[in-house]
Design a protein around this nucleic acid. Structure first.
Lengths: 216, 216, 216, 216
DNA sequence: GATGAATGAGCTTTCATTCAT
DNA sequence: CATGAATGAAAGCTCATTCAT
């Protein structure tokens, strides 16, 4: 017996009694969006497997049948979260990447923007990195493909900067992108609204840190 | 079991038929370590909730009774994975942080070392970030406390470097640490043995990227 | 429904993906008959319980509301199948039984006719014997009463033959009827359109087999 | 609205509140056999789909987990019923068919025996013909193959009789077998312990009816 | 008349965990 | 120490049926 740990009180599922409260505006959303919203919060707080469909529908104020009227299965709800995050993030990134400024400036802008939107949607970020692997293989493939497209677009931005001489060629572009996004994607594990820094301040520091490493 | 019928495909548990094969050396490990090892691989591949106790004991070649002899419950196995990772990483980091060289050099060495050991134990890294939130609150607290101690030690190293003038004071030490480790902790999401760069090369690039950002 | 995900294989309902195609003439039937027709085929192919109301209405090209407008409940659809089979079979049998010829000749004619109409409506026959027990007790009673009436009429025909000396008195009339219909009612379990014998040939053989056993 | 039928009181499942009572001897059976026994009775009374696993385990005095420890799924329990019936019936038939006497005598003996054993195990007979089609396709195939083997053996017996001149060649052997067994397999739909004839009397009459039809 | 969203009840199955042997 | 049968609780999902529009 390795150690006598205090036994968890209840079942291993529903690890926290977490309930989600919705604002007036959120309650007015169409049921499908309301369910995704509620599910995102619960998945972020407890994990996908540990969140029961029952918890989701209770938090949304409907019954299971209603959920299964809008989604084919629980996986589908999770997939919807990804779909939402990825589509939004990709859209924003591309708008900046395809915009004006030199490549280094645009990269910095992308970093700043993605930090802002990550902080604004922390739950989605958390769910994304903790639970993607729980999707059925087929859907994981789709998600990974979308992510790769995102990654490749940013890599092209870095390569453009390298060719233009505003970013160092010493670091392979691929690795540079991983480096940049690594720091950002981990924000969910430590950021807190009540921390000493605002999202903006974090974004500025990160822009600087990232860019100074990538300058020639 | 009367007869082995093909399992229904849709089962949300056992998402992959993943089985784990152990090397000769690993098979010779004491049962407790063997179980943790096998569990780590399964948790990394399928997630904690999606891995059944049955799968773990089958992969380790024993029966449930044996597992429950060594661990109080399934949570305890997961906790053991963390204990193992954290203890080892902390030991290595402190050895370097308390060693010779200026603060910036030691920080670079820490970064290099933690990347090396992360790549060498990818499964543990993956489980750590994906499944920590699934532990009962009590154990999460313990783990978070250990992580904070680790974080604080590295922060002290950064502060030392700032005071010594070898690291910039423009970035808060706390944020600097988050930045450094963010990139490292995400390695599990993209690193592959068959990728273009060796762990060593990645480590060198990351050291450079990190340090150039933190130089005054 | 957000997206069409492949259905999990193991679902105990919808055992086969059976869909029913209707001929032009059948599509022109009034909705109520069309629903009964479609339901008969689905019940025969999958069983009553395994066929969902959804499948029925989809196959008929309408929505649930339409079905519930014509039938009080799913049971009612099944009952309608019986009603249809029984009324038709009784009508034909009585026409022959009340017609010309000696009792043995009329019995033979009944056998021939019932085989012909059973083969022509195999699905109804199958549903009849597989699913009658699934009706609510009250409706089962009604159906059983109708069947008994049918049975008694044929028994009277046999008794008439016995009195007239054209059928043996060694076999109780009741048992004789069970014997005769046993063979016929099982046709659904082995008959195939592509088998070596036509319905007519089967009918002729069965007439001979039955009658030679019942001759004095 | 076709007709106003009295609505079924409860859910469509568990159509009857049927409970099964076990004799002392039956209660002493190993759990696996006890479950099959209880399930056979419930399936015969209510149908397979309409019988819940809950009903089975309650009648057997255990919990669901116990059932799933011995069977992989509900289908498996049904399959076990078939396996049991078929193996037993085949064994008995082959013993007689391979025994002494001319082919007609052996055929008569087979008929007598199968009636006796059908009456002795009416529930199994009923389940067999009503619910076989509810098995997954793979298992249906197996069952059909076993049945075909049985059918072929009896057909060979008929053919032997035809060659020996003790059975008519006017009726194709295949059809003859279908005819013989048709009557027998329907026994479940009308036989009652409290009816006017004993199983023995029925058997004797059927032997006579069948054989006189098949004599040259 | 017909639709589509929603309900409520129940179903099969899974699984961590216990315990007599 | 270890096993294998069994428990108890919950989970995901389906479906007949209702009802506002």
């Amino acid at each position: 017996m390795t150690r006598a740990l205090p036994k968890p009180a209840g079942s291993s599922k529903a690890r926290t009694g977490k309930t989600v409260r919705l604002s007036k505006a959120e309650q007015a959303l169409p049921l499908q969006q309301r369910l995704v919203l509620v599910a995102t919060r619960l998945f972020a707080a407890q994990g996908y497997d540990a969140t029961s469909v029952q918890q989701i529908v209770e938090a949304a104020g409907v019954t299971k049948g209603a959920l299964y009227h809008h989604f084919t299965c629980k996986d589908d709800v999770l997939y919807e979260v990804y779909h939402h995050v990825l589509a939004e993030q990709t859209r924003r990134m591309e708008e900046i990447a395809d915009g004006p400024g030199d490549a280094a400036q645009r990269l910095a802008a992308v970093v700043g923007d993605v930090i802002a939107s990550s902080v604004a949607n922390l739950d989605e970020l958390i769910v994304f990195f903790r639970s993607m692997h729980l999707l059925p293989e087929a859907q994981q493939k789709t998600v990974r493909a979308e992510r790769r497209r995102y990654h490749l677009r940013v890599r092209r931005l870095v390569e453009e900067g390298q060719r233009a001489g505003v970013l160092t060629t010493e670091v392979p572009a691929d690795l540079a992108v991983h480096f940049v996004y690594g720091a950002i994607h981990q924000i969910g594990t430590w950021y807190s609204d009540s921390g000493p820094l605002t999202a903006d301040e974090i974004a500025q520091h990160f822009e600087r840190l990232v860019l100074s490493g990538l300058r020639p």
